[in-house]
Write a protein that binds this DNA or RNA. Structure first.
Lengths: 204, 204
DNA sequence: GATATGATCGTAGGGATACTTT
DNA sequence: ACAAAGTATCCCTACGATCATA
C-alpha cells in the first residue's frame, strides 16, 4: 500500500465521488480512471493517459445518448446547482464485497484488529441491519451486545470490546478459528452470501 | 494537503502518467481526471454523472468536441476566488511539516508505532538525507544502523527493529521521553528546524 | 545534586492450547 | 466413544514505566 499527497480541494473532489459507503480511495480512483477493479495494472509507459482511456472505446451510437446526458447536466446547472442527489443505494452484495481486502483491515497487525475493523466497517455500511448481530451467540455466551456488562454477565472472561465508532460490543477472548465463526455468523445474519462471507473471514 | 492510500499497482499507474519531471501526484491526477490545474474545486454532487460520461467517451472527433464542452462545464463549476500564487516551495520544510498530524502516524495505537512510522515516512521523503541519522547515537549505544547486529553489538537489550520499507534499523527499548529525544536528534540531523521537530515529536 | 542514558521487569493484549459441552 | 463446537485458562510477546547507572 502506498500513499500519495493531494491538495485539499482535489481530496474533497475524490471523496465526493464515493459511490458506496466506506469505499476506499483506491476504489474511487480506479473507477474514475476507468482502471480494472482488482489485480495488477499493467503499466505501459509509452501510452498516454488518453490512450488508456480510449482503450475502453465505445461505439459512436452512444454519442447521442451522451449528448442527451449533457443537456440534462446543463439543465441541472441552470435549475438547482446545489440540489443534493438521492444517495444511490448500492446493493448489499457490493457493500459486503468492499470488505474483502479492505485497506483498513489489511493494515491491522493482529487478527483481533482485523476482526474489529471488519465489524466497524460493517456497521458503517449498514447501521440498522447491523442490529441482527445481536441474535448471534454461542452455547452459553452472548457474542454481541450494546453494552459491556451484558456480555460480561453471560461470560465473565469474554473480554468484551467496543466496536470502534459503533454502539456495539463484541466478545474478544477467542482463538482465530472462533473469530472466524463468530464473524461468519454475523455476516450471514446481515444477509451476506456464504461465499462472500468466506472471502471476508479469510482475512482474519 | 491530505493523504490518500492507494494500492501498489494503482500507485505505479499514476506515477507512470508523469509528464514532467518532479510532477506532483495532484498535478497528475488533475490531468487524468480533467480537472483544473489550480485552485478550489467546488464539489458539486449533483453532477457526479458527468465523470462517468467523460470516461466512456471515445477518442473520435465528434467526441472530443463533446469533451471540450464538458470541460467548459467543469470550468463553470470551478471557483477560483483568490488567484493564489503557485506554491512551489515544496522544499524540505514542507516535507517535515507533512509529518505533523500525519494520518498514518495518528492511526498507530502505541507510541512505538508512531515512532517507527514517522521514521518510515521520513525515509520515504528523503532517502538519501536519511543517512544522516546514522550519526545519531547515545552515550554508549548506537540508535540507528543498517542492520540488526550492529545495534545489538552496541546495546544488547536495545530491541532493534527495522524501520518499515527502509534498509535502516532503530533502537526500540526506551521510554517515551527517550523516543522523543532520539527522534528529535534524527530530525535535526536531517536539517529539520527545531520548531517543526518539536511539533513532530509531540505526536509520540 | 541534577541530568542523560541504559536496561530490567511489571503489565496488558493477544491468541494458542487445554478443557468442557453437545 | 468420537468429533466438533464452545469456553476460558494461561503462556508469550511487546510495550514502556521505572529503576539503575554514568
Amino acid at each position: 500500500m502506498k500513499f500519495i499527497e493531494v491538495e485539499d480541494d482535489l481530496y474533497r473532489y475524490i471523496a465526493s465521488q464515493t459511490e458506496s459507503i466506506g469505499e476506499s480511495a483506491s476504489a474511487i480512483l480506479r473507477r474514475l480512471l476507468e482502471l480494472p477493479p482488482l489485480g495488477e495494472i499493467r503499466v505501459e509507459p509509452s501510452l498516454t493517459a488518453d490512450h488508456n482511456l480510449a482503450a475502453t472505446v465505445v461505439a459512436s451510437p452512444v454519442v447521442s445518448a451522451i449528448k442527451d446526458e449533457l443537456a440534462e447536466i446543463k439543465q441541472e446547472l441552470v435549475q438547482q446547482p446545489t440540489q443534493q442527489p438521492i444517495q444511490q443505494l448500492c446493493q448489499s452484495s457490493d457493500e459486503f464485497n468492499s470488505l474483502v481486502e479492505h485497506p483498513q483491515v489489511l493494515e491491522q497487525k493482529a487478527s483481533i484488529g482485523r476482526f474489529l475493523m471488519i465489524l466497524s466497517l460493517l456497521y458503517r455500511q449498514q447501521p440498522q441491519q447491523f442490529a441482527n448481530v445481536l441474535n448471534v451467540s454461542g452455547r452459553d455466551r452472548l457474542y454481541f451486545a450494546k453494552d459491556e456488562d451484558t456480555l460480561l454477565a453471560s461470560g465473565p472472561s469474554s473480554k468484551p470490546k467496543q466496536i470502534e465508532s459503533t454502539p456495539y460490543w463484541v466478545v474478544t477472548n477467542s482463538n482465530n478459528g472462533m473469530k472466524c465463526r463468530i464473524l461468519r455468523k454475523a455476516l450471514l445474519a446481515m444477509d451476506c452470501s456464504g461465499d462472500v462471507a468466506d472471502q471476508i473471514i479469510e482475512q482474519i
